[in-house]
């Protein structure tokens, strides 16, 4: 049986020139060594399993959660905080809360900060896989035909910007500190009698003055919202600390741990991040869900649909005067 005629690979000694506008070039002639895969139409495959299920499920999950996040951030600014019954719950979509005077009324303050967590997720190595598969079908599943022949990967704008992931990581690490402060605040309740007056004072004097007026005394307590905010920040912490870029920066970039300065601790840190990184996909989904859930709970409490239960109080552990707590506030 005849052997298939082949176009020649250029000589191994041929220059490895960079292609047009930074496009890489292996030295192989375009179109050489082609197989049958490039002739498969969209969705064509011999796979008999439900290869379409995972990308569809992923797409549905992302649409629902990102859709909710958009609603909460841009349309739901009226109920981002719950400041009644001694609680101070802040939706994670609005933390850190920055509301300059120049911001138009119709624009949500979340707009000012969400670019950082949004950028962190959009350039995340896991989410990239998820949306390339589910929304770009590039590929929709392994060994399944694709809808387009044209492809430039991440070598051209806008996907070249994926390389900025580490900068969003730096921002995310700062956000984590702020979110953990929110967690502490979610576990410190104001004395009920005074806190009950907070909404009225808020409208008359503004948020800061209301807090001062309302906090005649504080104590540790656990509400439903406290746990939701703790869960949200906990998941965000695991998601951030399992980041591939962090894994690289803390030690992955080294070729020789034992030769590097502080090589032992860096190897230990890298090993811990590596273990977390093995579950990065799980943290990515749990954190997205947890943030939405925390916002939903705060929102429902704020609207009055849900009565936030007090699960436990620890008055003897923390009864601090107003001035001490103002450091946290």
């Amino acid at each position: 049986m005849p052997v298939a005629p082949q176009r020649k690979l250029s000589a191994a000694s041929a220059p490895t020139a960079v292609g047009a506008r930074g496009v890489p070039a292996t030295g192989t002639a375009p179109g050489a060594w082609s197989g049958a895969g490039s002739r498969q139409g969209f969705g064509a495959t011999e796979r008999g399993d439900a290869w379409w299920f995972k990308p569809v499920l992923q797409a549905a999950g992302l649409i629902v959660l990102i859709g909710y996040a958009n609603y909460a951030a841009f349309l739901g600014a009226a109920h981002y905080r719950y400041l009644e019954n001694g609680r101070d719950y802040l939706s994670p979509f609005y933390s850190p809360y920055i509301h300059p005077a120049w911001l138009p009324v119709w624009l949500s303050p979340a707009l000012l900060i969400l670019v950082f967590p949004l950028g962190f997720r959009a350039t995340c190595y896991y989410y990239r896989k998820a949306y390339y598969r589910s929304f770009f079908a590039d590929p929709i599943a392994c060994a399944v035909g694709e809808p387009r022949q044209a492809y430039c990967g991440e070598v051209k704008f806008p996907f070249l910007l994926q390389n900025l992931h580490r900068y969003f990581l730096y921002a995310a690490l700062v956000f984590l500190v702020i979110l953990w402060i929110d967690v502490v605040k979610a576990f410190i309740f104001s004395a009920p009698a005074l806190a009950a007056a907070a909404p009225a004072v808020t409208s008359a004097l503004g948020l800061h003055a209301a807090r001062e007026a309302a906090s005649g005394g504080h104590y540790l307590a656990i509400g439903g919202g406290s746990l939701a905010i703790l869960f949200s920040t906990g998941m965000l912490t695991l998601y951030t600390l399992s980041c591939h870029s962090l894994r690289h920066l803390v030690g992955g970039k080294l070729d020789c741990f034992s030769c590097a300065a502080a090589g032992g601790p860096r190897h230990k840190t890298w090993s811990i991040v590596t273990v977390l990184n093995g579950h990065h996909m799980a943290w990515a989904w749990w954190s997205l869900f947890a943030v939405c859930f925390a916002d939903f709970l705060v929102r429902m409490c704020s609207i009055g649909v849900i009565h936030d239960p007090t699960l436990a109080t620890f008055r003897h552990l923390l009864e601090m005067p107003n001035r001490s707590l103002s450091l946290l506030r």
């Binding site: 890489p24 070039a25 292996t26 030295g27 598969r133 990967g153 991440e154």
Partner: peptide, 18 residues
């Protein structure tokens, strides 16, 4: 970057799966 074309990989992990 310029020859192996690592930027073309969009990390969809099929290689790891198989």
């Amino acid at each position: 970057k310029d020859t192996a074309g690592i930027g073309l990989c969009n990390i969809t992990k099929c290689c790891t799966e198989v």
